[in-house]
Design a binder for these strands. Structure first.
Length: 284
DNA sequence: AGAACGTCTCGGCCGC
DNA sequence: TGCGGCCGAGACGTTC
């Protein structure tokens, strides 16, 4: 599923196409967790004008001009994809949004002239959308997350990797309250770059190692964003295109293949029920 | 059959 | 004995 670089890619596409537009229709194809209390969800959104689309951790945030917002989490297989006017809903689609540039008024009637269609689909239905009525409530949701790795200084990120001393570093990286937005792929990739084994306990890391890891987290995320993220299985961006970072992965999904640095076979273990990949020679 | 890019909840264990 | 912290297991649909 999308991690920070993939969500960031989608965020940029949504922001560039939806900023300033108004939602004119929301169609639900099935009930589900992604659209709690369907009618109210639709009623809350229709007529809202988007001031910007932002990202926090792996959440997408549509900010509306009236201070309310819509948050969306793609989890493993959620997707926002722009579609054409004659698009036929597919099996796992659940919501279709229609937008107009500016709602034209004539004799007190809103003239519907849709210019954009966006579909939300989710094969596994883990993802969700939630309408947030005011900025205070939104702030509450955001407060659950640790610092944004591309906004915080590396030193600040490194400091968050000190405790609890007995926690495995991989487990800490996956915890969104520690650092926001890092998921399974980029945790493994950053640890390889920093030459640190995923099973190391935080208490065993030197200050130098923590700082190196923090900087490698920032680097790998930036590099992936440049290439539109990583598509392992399902991920596509809002244009329906795959990310191109897959070929640059050094360990994730490369069990048995040679380490690009030393030629040793990449190992796969399980930590915190997540598959974890590392080079037994390069990572101490 | 087993695993999949995320996260939540629950139960058990450890240590103060 | 009580409680917080932490960890692992299981759950959430579906696909390949």
């Amino acid at each position: 599923m999308p991690e920070l670089p993939e969500v960031e890619t989608i965020k940029r596409q949504l922001d560039s196409k939806l900023r300033g537009k108004t939602i004119t229709a929301v169609t639900l194809f099935r009930s589900g967790r992604e659209a709690p209390r369907g009618k109210r969800f639709v009623a809350a959104l229709v007529g809202k004008k988007i001031s910007s689309v932002e990202r926090r951790a792996k959440l997408l945030v549509w900010r509306f001009t009236d201070g309310s917002s819509l948050i969306a989490h793609l989890k493993m297989t959620g997707r926002f994809v722009f579609v054409g006017k004659d698009y036929k809903p597919q099996k796992h689609d659940s919501v279709l949004f229609e937008f107009v540039e500016t709602p034209a008024m004539r004799s007190g009637q809103v003239i519907h002239a849709p210019t954009k269609f966006l579909v939300w689909s989710d094969v596994r239905k883990f993802g969700f959308m939630r309408y947030i009525p005011n900025s205070a409530e939104l702030a509450g949701v955001m407060a659950c997350y640790g610092p944004e790795p591309l906004e915080a200084r590396a030193e600040e990120l490194a400091d968050r990797l000190k405790t609890p001393k007995t926690r495995m570093v991989k487990t800490a990286l996956l915890n969104q309250a520690v650092i926001a937005g890092v998921g399974n792929i980029y945790a493994d990739e950053a640890l390889h770059r920093a030459h640190i084994r995923p099973s190391r306990r935080l208490g065993s890391l030197t200050e130098k190692e923590r700082l190196a890891l923090a900087k490698d987290i920032q680097k790998v995320l930036c590099e992936s964003i440049e290439l539109g993220g990583t598509s392992v299985n399902d991920y596509v961006d809002a244009r329906g295109e795959k990310g191109k970072f897959l070929d640059l992965l050094r360990v994730y999904g490369r069990k048995g293949e040679k380490c690009r640095d030393c030629g040793t076979a990449i190992k796969r273990i399980v930590i915190g029920q997540r598959s974890t990949h590392y080079c037994p020679k390069c990572q101490k």
